[in-house]
């Protein structure tokens, strides 16, 4: 457990030591803020004190933001050869992968923390359902963890960061809407399976404030699968 923390802390130090970190955070807040407050069917359009607009937008921004964070996680270590140092230290593959996973999750949690002023502003505008807001944030964290584990797996298969980035988007896009679109055209068991695989329905029910064990199991099992395959990739 201790070594997971050591790796996480190292990753965070390196991340916040680079200009990249601040550009990424600014981009995330910029995009989310712009579409939440200023553009299109923004938060005022709903006519209710609710953050659902923000959650729907963050659903998209995180989709692009996370691959940019995870792409270097293992690919860079493979490219520079530092993975060799890491894998000859007394540490297990799981500890390495989990250390990386939690470091990205911590960055996302930090980015989401910076959007809390949205919550405070909206709650001052009218009566807000506090429970559903926290559920929404939990849904965003779950969704992020889901993409992070895909991203780390994509980063583990080659030493090229761009491949890591694109592959995460490619896998992500299936869960994001291809499965859902296919489910619309299928019926019976196949339709059920496809719609179960789609991340949107699980996310939306959580973001609306319903915590169902079915959704939690969905997220946890895919997170586990992604990390499991990543740590398998570290074996030579």
């Amino acid at each position: 457990m201790n070594k997971i923390l050591i790796i996480t802390v190292r990753e965070l130090k390196v991340f916040f030591d680079s200009l990249m970190a601040y550009i990424m955070l600014l981009a995330f807040l910029g995009f989310s803020g712009f579409f939440t407050w200023l553009f299109g069917s923004d938060i005022f359009f709903v006519g209710q004190a609710s953050l659902t607009t923000f959650f729907a937008i963050a659903f998209w921004t995180l989709f692009f933001f996370i691959p940019a964070l995870t792409m270097r996680m293992l690919a860079e270590e493979k490219k520079t050869g530092t993975l060799e140092i890491l894998l000859t230290m007394p540490v297990t593959n799981w500890e390495i992968v989990l250390g990386k996973f939690f470091s990205v999750l911590a960055v996302i949690a930090f980015a989401l923390l910076l959007t809390l002023p949205y919550y405070f502003s909206v709650s001052s505008l009218g009566h807000i359902d506090h429970g559903s807001v926290w559920c929404g944030y939990l849904a965003l964290l779950m969704l992020s963890a889901f993409y992070i584990s895909i991203g780390i797996f994509a980063s583990s298969i080659s030493n090229n960061q761009i491949i890591g980035f694109l592959l995460t988007l490619l896998i992500g896009i299936f869960f994001h809407f291809i499965f859902e679109a296919l489910a619309g055209g299928s019926s019976g068991l196949l339709g059920h399976i496809l719609s179960y695989l789609s991340v949107a329905s699980h996310f939306q029910s959580m973001a609306r404030g319903v915590i169902d064990s079915k959704d939690i199991i969905y997220f946890l099992s895919f997170i586990w699968l992604g990390l499991f395959m990543s740590q398998k990739q570290l074996k030579y």
Binding site: K13, V14, S18, T80, T82, E84, I85, T88, M89, V91
Partner: peptide
């Protein structure tokens, strides 16, 4: 172990890197 080509975490300061290596051990 000192691998061929001596891979290092280039973005870290020397002391931090040694601290990391020590902690991992």
């Amino acid at each position: 172990y000192l691998p061929e080509n001596n891979p290092l975490y280039n973005e870290m300061p020397v002391v931090d890197y040694l601290y990391f290596a020590g902690a991992m051990h």
